[in-house]
């Protein structure tokens, strides 16, 4: 049962293998670049396992010790994770004790694989999800460790490697833009963030931006429902 699930899960994770290896290396290199010891990279990837959070945490580790700032910064960056669980409520039912790990390991990438892939016939759902999550985390630990160890020996200027995160989000945005004909949610996200950045400044933008997004999305929901209703009344096909 465990083996069958692994055989099905492994091929699905190959894109994430390359993505995490590269991002993990960028993260490890960044850690070394700012003067932290290499072993903190695998430690963080083991106990935190969240890309954007870990990049931000490097910044926290550079400043004076401040638990409250570390807490609020992490909350601000990972608040979006609150919503990932919503689409896993059904999927994570009756997975025989693997649920705590599945919840812990629910990154952007694992999330996208779990919603994109149906559980193959003959494979146990719990084990299938477990292997996808665990393989992804192993890639992330491997990448960040390699980056942190290589960073010590490579006489190379890594300035600018942090652009990997920007590029990853841009890549996902472009992917979503092509996959979904309704661009309003994306534009609501961008617009809310720009507005929040202008009003609250770079340090405090995330939470207000999220509130603005919720307002925007619920306003859009009403409009969308009205549109759907009137389309029905007119007898037209609704998209």
């Amino acid at each position: 049962m465990i083996k069958t699930a692994f055989k099905h899960a492994f091929p699905k994770t190959i894109p994430v293998f390359f993505g995490y290896l590269f991002l993990g290396i960028s993260f490890g290199v960044l850690m070394i670049g700012v003067g932290l010891d290499w072993y903190w990279a695998p430690v963080m990837s083991l106990v935190i396992f969240a890309g954007s959070v870990q990049f931000v945490a490097v910044g926290s580790l550079l400043t004076a010790f401040n638990p409250l700032t570390a807490f609020t910064l992490t909350l601000a960056v990972s608040a979006r994770q609150l919503f990932y669980g919503l689409s896993m409520l059904e999927r994570f039912k009756s997975v025989n004790g693997k649920k705590p790990y599945l919840i812990f390991a629910l990154t952007d990438e694992t999330y996208s694989l779990l919603v994109a892939e149906n559980v193959p016939e003959g494979a146990d759902r719990g084990w299938f999800y477990f292997w996808i999550s665990a393989l992804n985390q192993s890639y992330w630990i491997l990448g960040s460790t390699l980056g942190a160890v290589f960073g010590m020996f490579l006489p190379f200027n890594f300035k600018g490697i942090e652009f990997a995160m920007t590029a990853l989000f841009l890549y996902i945005l472009l992917n979503q833009w092509e996959a979904n004909a309704d661009h309003a949610p994306t534009l609501i996200g961008i617009g809310s963030a720009l507005l929040s950045l202008a009003v609250f400044g770079p340090e405090r933008m995330i939470i207000p931006a999220m509130i603005a997004i919720l307002i925007g999305l619920f306003a859009y929901r009403k409009r969308r429902e009205r549109k759907t209703d009137s389309a029905r009344e007119n007898g037209g096909a609704c998209s």
């Binding site: 994306t186 963030a193 931006a209």
Partner: peptide
């Protein structure tokens, strides 16, 4: 699961990624 949560599940991933891209350039 209430309707509003089902709706958010559909649209939030798009809005959140849009926000994160802006966040990177802040």
């Amino acid at each position: 699961i209430p309707d509003w949560a089902v709706y958010l599940d559909k649209v939030l991933p798009y809005a959140v990624i849009g926000m994160l891209v802006v966040f990177c350039f802040k």
